[in-house]
Simulated assay, not measured.
Amino acid sequence: MSSQHARVFHSQEQVQHPVHQPNVVRKKVKVQKRWVTRGEKFMYILFAAITLSFSTYIVTYSSSLDQLNRNIDTLNTQIEEQSVHNANLTYKVKELSQPQRIIANAKEHGLKVGNTQVKQASEVTD
């Protein structure tokens, strides 16, 4: 055989396709390049869950603190109003317990007051 025939024969061998065997099943495996691994996905999800729960806790705490401050302000306003009311009542008590007013009221209702001196009682004892 000459060298040219050998080259042609060799090139024909390479061109021939292999015969498919019916019993052999070939699977095509696709290699996918993952941008994020499973471990990284787990870490990202865990971080997101922790961040979300912490944010929810902060908002809840802030809301309850704000509500508590509003209640305190309401109570302080009520205390101030009650203090003013008590001061007004104390002034009225002093005004109504003046001896001249009591004598005038007694005379108006027909009571006779002698030469006694009317004194204001500072304490009432039982």
Rank of each mutant, 00 (worst) to 15 (best):
M1P: 03
S3P: 02
V8M: 12
F9I: 15
E13H: 05
V15R: 09
V15T: 12
Q16P: 09
H17K: 07
P18W: 04
H20W: 06
Q21G: 05
N23R: 11
N23I: 04
V25G: 00
R26W: 06
R26Y: 07
R26A: 15
R26V: 14
K27R: 10
K27P: 13
K28C: 09
K30S: 10
V31Y: 05
Q32K: 14
W35K: 12
W35T: 12
W35N: 07
W35H: 10
V36A: 10
V36G: 01
R38T: 13
F42M: 12
M43S: 14
L46R: 08
A48R: 00
A49Q: 05
I50D: 04
I50E: 02
S53C: 14
Y57I: 15
Y57S: 15
Y61I: 14
Y61P: 01
S62N: 09
S63R: 15
S64I: 13
L65T: 05
L65I: 06
D66C: 08
Q67N: 12
N69D: 01
N71L: 12
I72M: 08
I72F: 01
D73I: 11
L75Q: 15
N76K: 13
T77D: 14
E80N: 13
Q82K: 12
S83G: 09
S83E: 11
V84I: 12
V84L: 06
N88V: 05
N88K: 01
L89C: 04
K92A: 11
K94Q: 08
P99K: 05
Q100L: 05
R101F: 09
R101M: 01
I102N: 04
A104P: 02
N105G: 07
A106T: 03
K107I: 09
E108S: 15
E108L: 15
H109P: 03
G110Q: 00
K112V: 15
V113R: 06
G114S: 04
G114M: 00
G114E: 09
N115F: 03
T116Q: 03
T116D: 04
Q117M: 06
K119W: 01
K119I: 00
Q120A: 13
Q120F: 04
A121V: 11
A121E: 08
V124P: 05
D126G: 13
